[in-house]
């Protein structure tokens, strides 16, 4: 802090700390903390609500008795006494009823238990499918990235990457929508299959469409990080390995892949996170006909079932899986956060 003040002076330092503080505490930390907190409680009927309701019933009986007493009262004084007691009972009933019906905040883990078998299966499906998307993206993209970075002359490589920026930078929704058209009942793929006597195949209704569109939508998030690290690999290293008698597989296993670790980590983390957290792809590709993606369940908890506590628990489960995946990749590939976020 003293370093900060010496460099920028007191007023500017205060402004820097203020702005960074609002961002870090107000925008990043506080919402996450509130979401975590919210996932661990629920509004419940107060403890002893059953006893309370028995007590209230008894008081109502007493009220009936008092009404009879009121009618049978011999004189004004007795009637006033009965009235006084009736008012007191009435007040007590009102107070107890408020207590009975006001839910209290109860700490619980039950929001996480709400998932049930069906939702748990969707959660697992979402994670497994996202892992599969990540694996496919890596297998498809590694040769591409290697070919562009190491086999093409630098200027041609730059042109190729510039061309790839176009499908990469175009809005995710458009990439998804293109595949909705292709895989639709009347789409070109079913038309082609029809020529050879197959189909029509319900790609969208079976959930296949989600997977296909997801691979297409996120595959370039694997190409760019891989290309960026492979571009920095000294081609002489590959030549040297070949001169020393290494075969193609050995060169990749011992020279290229170890060099590409940070790029592999970034590519896998981005692809997995985008897939597992994708709302657009399942939303557009299923039209509600196939099983939902987990993100759609999260959305529904909040905006249709309006159970925000359960919704928070669902959202947090997704966040934990994604964070876990980041640590897993960092551990497996031995890279640090600074290598990832560039």
């Amino acid at each position: 802090m003293t370093k900060l003040r010496r460099a920028f002076g007191a007023p500017l330092s205060a402004l820097i700390v203020f702005l960074a503080g609002i961002w870090i505490l107000g925008l990043i930390a506080a919402p996450q903390i509130i979401m975590i907190e919210q996932s661990f409680w629920t509004m419940q009927r107060p403890e002893g609500a059953a006893e309370l309701s028995v007590k209230i019933d008894a008081l109502y009986n007493r009220l009936d008795v008092l009404a009879l007493d009121h009618a049978a009262a011999p004189d004004e004084a007795a009637r006033a006494a009965v009235d006084a007691e009736r008012d007191a009972v009435q007040t007590e009933i009102t107070a107890l009823e408020v207590e009975e019906s006001t839910p209290v905040k109860t700490w619980t883990l039950s929001n996480y238990g709400q998932m049930g078998k069906a939702h748990l299966a969707i959660f697992a499906k979402t994670i497994l499918a996202s892992l599969a998307v990540t694996a496919i993206a890596f297998v498809v993209c590694y040769p591409i990235a290697f070919a562009i970075a190491k086999l093409e002359p630098p200027r041609r490589a730059a042109m190729i990457m510039l061309a790839l920026v176009i499908p990469y930078a175009i809005n995710e929704l458009l990439r998804v929508f293109a595949w909705q058209m292709i895989l639709n009942y009347g789409g070109p793929l079913n038309a082609a299959l029809g020529l050879v006597g197959i189909g029509p195949v319900p790609f969208l209704e079976s959930g296949t469409g989600v997977f296909v569109a997801m691979v297409y939508a996120y595959i370039l998030f694997m190409v760019f990080p891989l290309y960026n690290v492979l571009e920095t690999l000294d081609t002489n290293q590959i030549e040297a390995a070949r001169d020393l008698g290494a075969g193609t597989i050995q060169i990749h296993r011992r020279v290229v892949l170890p060099h590409a670790r940070p790029g592999i980590a970034v590519g896998c983390i981005m692809t997995f996170m985008l897939s597992a957290g994708s709302y657009a792809v399942p939303y557009i590709m299923t039209r509600g006909t196939a099983d939902p993606w987990f993100t759609q369940l999260v959305y529904n908890r909040f905006f249709q079932a309006t159970n925000w506590n359960v919704g928070a628990a669902y959202a947090l489960s997704l966040l934990v899986v994604c964070t876990g995946f980041i640590f897993l990749m960092m551990g497996l590939l031995k890279v640090r956060l600074r290598d990832i976020a560039k």
């Binding site: 870090i24 919402p31 509130i34 979401m35 996170m273 957290g277 993100t295 994604c322 956060l337």
Partner: peptide, 26 residues
């Protein structure tokens, strides 16, 4: 601090959206 500041890039977008709404609902 760096870890905290880059964490939004490694968080699924829907979580950023929904946690903001939860926070401001209070």
């Amino acid at each position: 601090l760096y870890t905290v500041m880059v964490s939004p890039l490694l968080t699924p977008g829907i979580i950023l959206g929904i946690s903001t709404v939860i926070f401001w609902r209070n």
